[in-house]
Design a protein around this nucleic acid. Sequence first.
DNA 1: TAGATTGTTAATCGATTAACAATC
DNA 2: TAGATTGTTAATCGATTAACAATC
Lengths: 211, 211
Amino acid sequence: MGCNLNRPTLERLMQYYHYITEHLHPHPPDSANVSSVQIAELLGIDPAQVRKDLAAINVKGQPNVGYKISTVVESIRQCLGFDKNYNAVLIGAGRLGGAIACYDEFRFYGLKIAALLDNALQKIGTMIDGHKVQSVEMLEDIVQQQNIKLAILTVPAEAAQKLAERVTAAGIETIWNFSPTSLVMPDNVIVRNEHLSVGLAQLFYHLARRT
Amino acid sequence: MGCNLNRPTLERLMQYYHYITEHLHPHPPDSANVSSVQIAELLGIDPAQVRKDLAAINVKGQPNVGYKISTVVESIRQCLGFDKNYNAVLIGAGRLGGAIACYDEFRFYGLKIAALLDNALQKIGTMIDGHKVQSVEMLEDIVQQQNIKLAILTVPAEAAQKLAERVTAAGIETIWNFSPTSLVMPDNVIVRNEHLSVGLAQLFYHLARRT
DNA sequence: TAGATTGTTAATCGATTAACAATC
DNA sequence: TAGATTGTTAATCGATTAACAATC
């Protein structure tokens, strides 16, 4: 809501969320608390940073007690929009597209894969884990009828840019791109390129410095 | 080699690399150049930033001309370690594991999936796009025999932490984790959690601020 | 009360941007 | 030569860390 977050803060909040929901949440009773020092130590950061981040999403703690876990979790969910529901269209029913279509966790974040599209005739009409593969020709209709706000691309590099332009022409302004190419889009379109090689580069950089 | 890069610089270098190899590289003759302004405009950043980044990896430009494209590409590859060859073991032969095993681009970055492991009996012995699925029992032997430096995890959340510990016990100090859970590892282990929800959080945050 | 923890201001640190002389 | 672009120093900006009074 009234929270205005920068990128590092956003990333850290996601880490807190994972740490708390995976390691703390169900265990203690509903009223259980967590301190900034606990979180900070696990993540290897400064406790003041944690307090600043939580203050940024209007979470209030109690001196000598800490923060109420359920409040922290709910506030993060709300501020990051996980309590809303978004429909996405997934284009590209290859291996990666199939993996994402089946990714069960998305429902915890309010994301629903409303349609799975491909242009290969032999795939159209088949089922992938409950999702019927439809023709890419249906794109514009589906976007309009199902109030789609997000397009997820898992197509070959050659097809990605053209498809991204078609998707935005159809009215979608947010693209999550898993195709192995960097999309070049006007500023009004939100693009997140999830190119595997970026992660690889970081790992290699540290690997090389070690051996 | 003598390059010491921070995280933002590393990420930007990867962007330059993609932009140049995808949009510029093969087109002009080998001697063709690119200027910091060209790169900066496309990526929406400051030209001085580009010059700083290239200086950080010891790339020299020519006043009034720019930077030689082939030099830029080669220097990035060398500094990020793409000119070396690394063997990885991929654990988890599900949909996502299959997608990664088949990911052809890895060879441009010097990464080879040397082994694909799973613990499901019905998968062991089957072929996935040229990779024979082997039992997880083979992990320690394979790591030793094939000089494996990197483990890629695409397993269910419940299995990830235990497996990560087993992998490090076997001598691997770098983990690329695609399992939907955050690994908690000692500082000497390099972990990159590629949790999809982090990307999703950023997209949602911007989406919510728009509508 | 004593001890622990928050909330926040001030100090530090580091990264980005501006500016411009040097150079082709 | 004039114009464009690099390389780098200085100025700015923003994020992180230190410190500590307020509070339970």
